[in-house]
């Protein structure tokens, strides 16, 4: 009963977010095509490439994960929804939004390709195609399925990752928040290159495993998502929920 109500409440938010994202992306796409056409009509011959859909959707899911969890926990607890149900709602909502964006991604790709055909100096790229289909503009039905599944896992991981950072900053004290905030970019830009030689063997093995097939990469995404999700659940189980 409460789960149904919570999902119903959350779904509206997700639909609104997905709708806004599509409108923004379509506007950008139309602007890109317009720029390309103006370029051609002025005698130019340069190519315009647009490949931001997947990364854009990933960033959006990450931000949604960061922003939503604290607000939702507060709202749900005020309305008599337990923590377990509130957490389950996050999973369902994340899956719903990820599926919407993944399906939207496929439709967007088809639409973009159709529009781009009349403008030859526009190239519409996408992550799956670049990684597993040699940059092909049109995909087979099976490739569409693979691409949909890959994006689903990729986006779900972003949402859970965003939720993790939000919860982490919620439970840490001020000093630790600063330490973590400084550590993240340090780890990315200095830590990974530093540790790479020591772990190059297993990391290269993972890279090779992922390069074989999109299903392998999806499996890695799902494992990472499951681990982060489990940690998130452990955090939400007992954190104090305070109002504003």
């Amino acid at each position: 009963m409460k789960l149904r109500a919570a999902v119903h409440y959350k779904s509206k938010d997700m639909l609104k977010s997905a709708g806004t994202y599509f409108i923004v992306l379509l506007t950008i796409l139309l602007a890109v095509i317009a720029v390309a056409r103006i370029n051609v009509s002025n005698g130019g011959s340069s190519y315009v490439t647009f490949s931001g859909y997947t990364i854009g959707a990933w960033v959006m899911m990450l931000v949604m994960g960061i922003c939503a969890i604290r607000e939702d926990l507060r709202f749900f607890i005020q309305n008599g929804v337990g923590r377990r149900t509130a957490f389950l709602t996050q999973w369902i909502a994340a899956l719903e939004l990820a599926a919407l964006l993944a399906i939207g991604g496929r439709l967007f790709q088809l639409l973009a390709n159709a529009i781009a055909q009349s403008t030859p100096n526009v190239r519409i790229g996408e992550l799956y195609s670049m990684l597993y289909a040699q940059g092909a503009m049109s995909l087979s039905l099976w490739q569409h399925v693979e691409s949909f599944m890959l994006y689903l896992g990729f986006l779900l991981m972003a949402y859970m990752g965003g939720m993790f950072f939000s919860l982490l900053f919620y439970v840490l004290n001020k000093t630790m928040q600063i330490v973590v905030a400084v550590s993240i970019p340090f780890l990315l830009f200095a830590g990974i290159p530093f540790i790479w030689p020591y772990f190059s063997g297993p990391l290269t093995a993972v890279y090779r495993f992922c390069a074989v097939s999109s299903w392998n990469l999806l499996l890695v995404f799902l494992i990472v998502t499951a681990i982060i999700g489990a940690v998130n659940r452990l955090i939400t189980r007992r954190i104090p929920i305070r109002g504003l």
């Binding site: 009963m1 607000e71 709202f75 607890i77 008599g80 923590r83 149900t85 109002g243």
Partner: peptide
Amino acid sequence: DRDDVLGKIYMMGEENYYP
């Protein structure tokens, strides 16, 4: 952490729990 039980109680606190 039980919805059916928590749904029987409503708390009006001093803080805001709404978005």
